[in-house]
């Protein structure tokens, strides 16, 4: 029984990892995300709590949502907004994963 459970858990994990690899989502590096996001802090702040009116807080936001939002800004077809379209344009997939991980790790 114990063995079966272990086996089950391991397969689950493997499948999980496999699924991530297949979807192309890179493993995230929070420190690299923080470094890359310095220019974003001009508006969203280093603690993810924005002060400028009309600018959303990003602290503690759902990670997948942040990634999706940044991709959408980068593509510019579904989310069109002059500030964020320009800011997301230079970001690679890896950057997006790292930055999303950084902001989602912050306390709200």
């Amino acid at each position: 029984m114990k063995k079966l459970l272990t086996f089950g858990l391991v397969t689950c994990c493997l499948i999980g990892v496999d699924a991530r690899a297949q979807s192309g989502a890179p493993a995230a590096d929070i420190a690299a995300g923080q470094q890359r996001a310095a220019a974003c802090f001009a508006c969203h702040n280093a603690n993810g709590i924005a002060q400028i009116p009309g600018t959303p807080h990003l602290a503690g936001q759902e990670r997948g949502y942040l990634e999706k939002a940044l991709r959408a800004y980068r593509d510019g077809s579904t989310r069109q907004e002059p500030t964020m379209n320009a800011m997301a344009k230079p970001l690679s997939d890896q950057d997006i994963a790292n930055i999303a991980a950084y902001f989602s790790s912050l306390p709200r």
Binding site: C40, A42, A46, P82, A86, K89, P90
Partner: peptide, 25 residues
Amino acid sequence: DKLHGATDEDLIAAFLQGPLKHGTQ
């Protein structure tokens, strides 16, 4: 300091290309 010590030129340029170019602030 306003750019929080950013050293990535592409993102600093993005700040000029987006918010400053469109006058959003």
